[in-house]
Design a binder for these strands. Sequence first.
DNA 1: TCTATGATCGTA
DNA 2: ACGATCATAGAG
Length: 186
Amino acid sequence: MTVARDLIGKGLYLRRGRQEFLVELVEVEAYLGPLDPASHAYRGPTPRARVMFEDGGLCYAYLSYGINYCMNVVTGRQGTGEAVLLRAAVPLAGVPAMRHNRGLGEDASQYLLTNGPGKLCQALGIDLRYNGKDFFRDDFKWVDLGKAVPPDAIAATPRIGITKAKDEPLRFVLRESRWLSRKFQV
DNA sequence: TCTATGATCGTA
DNA sequence: ACGATCATAGAG
């Protein structure tokens, strides 16, 4: 949870072939493991959730609603099943490719690029092949963007799109960001 | 601005 | 059958 908070404002870089992407994370959600009924780890290390139980630093990617992909950072030690869902980001590099991946024209609002977990993955070209990849290798890189994010710039709110444990404030957002999947309410 | 709905498929 | 989503349609 404090790990999730620390991801706000971090830069994530991805290279695929000749394409390079860089985004700044502005919205994440913590999923706490087997005791969290909203987590995919709730039923233990099933085939889908297996990488959630690996050591931290891996990518847990899955198909959501048969339509979109979503990506997580595994954050616990081996066996704990903790992960953080990446929900929204600011596009910093590779914007034309993201626009293409999203099927958006030049005139479409820039905020539609990466303001949701499915949109973020589509923009970056993330699919099931990225499940189990290492965010510290495998063409990913964490980038220090050099911005200090003061604690009061980050807000904690309930998680989105879940039915169980919906009241825990485990979604972390950069308060004033225009790139959130939903506007932060006071 | 909001609520409802359909698309679509891996997982359990 | 369900779901850590999204885009669209229609009402107010």
